[in-house]
Amino acid sequence: MTTPSTHALTAVPTGAELALHGVRLGHPGGAAVSGPVGVRIAPGELLTVVGPSGCGKTTLLRTLAGLLPPLEGRVTQDGEPVRRPGVDRAFVFQHDALLPWRSVRANVELPLAIRRVPRAERRRSAEEWLERVGLAGHAHGLPGRLSGGQRQRVQLARALAGRPRAVLMDEPFGALDATTRAGMQDLLVEILRGTGATVVFVTHDVDEALHLGDRVLLFGSGEVLDVPHPRARDAREAPATAALRRRVLDSL
């Protein structure tokens, strides 16, 4: 990690508490994609959500973000209802949503520009984040010239540069090959450390969910299970992990 700076932007924010109270997810006018969901995500927690593709995991994230109103029930952040998207809850999209006409650095600067952070400061901050994700050399390039993995790293940097109190990640590594994916997971763990942000990470990959999460939400049943050894690569074969994996796989 880089040494913590003293200015306000890199001061450690506290994670947000997110909660769904009896929420029915779905698109307005369409059928509900899930029954009532009630879950509380603790500040600073990393909750992974597993479920088969197309079951509505993305809808859950979009509802948490405020991009989509729930059909029923309430979504809250620290007890306050979530009504619209906001700077507190950054979203990392499955397919990179970088603005293709902005340079890589300008993309990372975006949340800071929106907050009217002075140019010099946001430039420095963006460069710091790009260095953290290992793309310092690509700052001036356009996103279109990067590989899929690199683009997702830029998205991570952009999401975190705004110092969000929660990060909602929608299968961000889903399109990457296995090696890149493992590298990205390690990178994610590393750069999340010290941010204090609450993370909701959607994936259809059980191993990814068990590696990254403090807890796993099984989307189908709504159960939330504790992960015995979060973010410990060598605990992959531990008996408790293996038992949980079996249980998760059975539920799918």
Binding site: A65, L67, R84, P85, G86, V87, R89, A90, F91, F93, H95, A97, L98, L99, L110, P111, I114, R115, R158, A159, G162, L168
Partner: peptide, 10 residues
């Protein structure tokens, strides 16, 4: 997604 990205960045 471009618009949603900007919305979720504040």
């Amino acid at each position: 997604a471009w618009e949603e990205a900007v919305l979720t960045l504040g």
